[in-house]
Amino acid sequence: MNKFYSMLGLCRRAGKLLPGRLPVEKGIAKSNVRLVIIAEDASENTKKKFVSLCNDKNIIYIIAGNMSYIGKSIGRDNTAVIGITDENLSNKLLAEAKEVLTNGGE
């Protein structure tokens, strides 16, 4: 497992991660979320919904990873959407995601 997924586990342990659709929606509504991560294999409806919510609130989002790896990294089953509530951790995750996406590696 690469650094991106390891960082997700760190965010969970630090209490800076909202797992799943409903907690992320609530976090977006309260403007508590700094970064939304949507799994590449999430349903099209889920992607559209969260992209729209993020755009409405000017929240950064990325579509990266898959539901299985995201879920495993945070100690859950398949997870399509997570929210990161900490600015520093979200910046580090963005950097790691860019590394994964540009180098094409797991």
Rank of each mutant, 00 (worst) to 15 (best):
M1C: 03
N2A: 01
N2D: 15
Y5V: 02
M7G: 04
G9T: 07
C11A: 15
A14N: 11
G15W: 08
K16H: 12
L17G: 09
L18A: 15
P19E: 14
G20D: 10
G20Y: 08
L22N: 11
L22Y: 10
P23T: 09
P23R: 08
G27H: 07
G27F: 06
S31W: 00
S31E: 13
N32F: 03
N32K: 14
V33H: 06
L35E: 05
V36E: 09
I37Y: 02
E40R: 12
E40D: 11
D41Q: 04
A42N: 01
S43Y: 01
S43W: 00
N45R: 10
N45Q: 11
T46N: 03
K47S: 10
K47A: 12
K49G: 03
F50V: 07
S52T: 15
S52K: 15
N55A: 07
N55C: 00
K57C: 01
K57Q: 15
N58F: 08
N58D: 14
I59K: 03
I60M: 08
I60G: 00
I63T: 11
I63N: 03
I63V: 14
G65C: 07
G65F: 09
N66P: 00
S68P: 00
I70E: 04
I70A: 02
K72V: 01
S73M: 10
G75E: 07
A80N: 02
A80W: 00
V81C: 07
I82Q: 05
G83A: 06
I84W: 05
T85S: 11
T85E: 06
D86F: 08
D86C: 11
E87V: 11
N88Q: 12
L89K: 03
L89D: 10
L89M: 14
L89P: 00
S90D: 02
S90I: 01
S90A: 15
N91T: 06
N91D: 11
N91E: 15
K92A: 14
L93E: 08
L94R: 14
L94N: 02
E96D: 10
K98E: 14
E99L: 13
V100T: 08
N103E: 13
N103I: 04
G104K: 11
G104C: 03
G105H: 13
G105W: 13
G105C: 06
G105I: 15
E106N: 13
